[in-house]
Every structure is written in C-alpha cells, then in structure tokens.
C-alpha cells in the first residue's frame, strides 16, 4: 500500500488525505475540543503554551542541526554560528526579526561562497 502501489489517478490523493490530512487535522480538532473547555486566563494555559513552544522549538533545532536538501551539505558549525549570531543580532536590536534573519542568511551565504 505504498504511494505508487495502485495504478489509478485517485490513489495518490487518497494516500495524501489519509496519511496527511487525517494525521494532521485530527490533532487540530482535538485541540478545539480540549481548548473549548478552558477560559483564556486558565493557569493551565501557561503549561499548554510551554509545551507547544518547546515542541515548535524542537522542530527548529532539528531543522538547523539535521537539515534536509542542499542545506545538509553545509558544515554544522556554519549553520549553528549563523543562527546564533543572527539571533543575538535580533535580541540586540530590540527584537527586530528582519535584522536577525538578514544577519543569519548573510553569514550563511558568505560561509558557503568562501568555503
């Protein structure tokens, strides 16, 4: 039952619906069900926010340390250095996102071209 197992036009779409749509929206719908029981100042929401944030941060960490595509061909120290210095620039300029992003991308591209 792989993506190319059934030779018809609709099978890949059914595959995407089951392995993709159902596997993501089920979690979103569960969130609406559970969130509907909470007031917006419920203390437990701090815990929910820390868990949600740690999960998203884990995605970010993996994207930098274990990247996909052409980024995987760059050295780890370059990616880590670019991200850390970019983040420091973001903090030092009063949390201006564009500064952090431009600094990190400039360092990464400079590193790629000069290596």
């Amino acid at each position: 039952m792989t993506f190319s197992a059934v030779d018809s036009w609709w099978w890949p779409f059914l595959f995407i619906l089951i392995a993709g749509w159902l596997a993501t929206d089920a979690w979103r719908f569960l969130g609406v069900y559970l969130g509907g029981r909470l007031r917006d100042d419920a203390p437990v929401l701090v815990l929910v926010r820390t868990i949600a944030t740690a999960l998203v941060a884990a995605v970010i960490g993996n994207l930098i340390i274990f990247p996909s595509g052409e980024l995987a061909d760059t050295p780890l120290w370059l990616r880590l250095g670019a991200a850390l210095i970019g983040f420091a620039a973001f903090l030092l300029t009063g949390q201006r996102m564009i500064v952090g992003i431009v600094v990190a991308e400039a360092l990464l591209l400079f590193g790629i071209y000069s290596l």
């Binding site: 089920a26 979690w27 979103r28 969130g31 909470l38 917006d40 929401l45 998203v56 995605v59």
Partner: peptide, 16 residues
C-alpha cells in the same frame, strides 16, 4: 501523526 502532535497544544492555546 507523530510530527503533528504539537498542533493540539497550539490549538488549545489559541482557541480561548
């Protein structure tokens, strides 16, 4: 599904 569990706490935080 494993990669998307995080959507639940995100939605729980957003709904209220």
């Amino acid at each position: 599904a494993l990669s998307s569990v995080r959507l639940t706490p995100m939605v729980v935080a957003l709904v209220p």
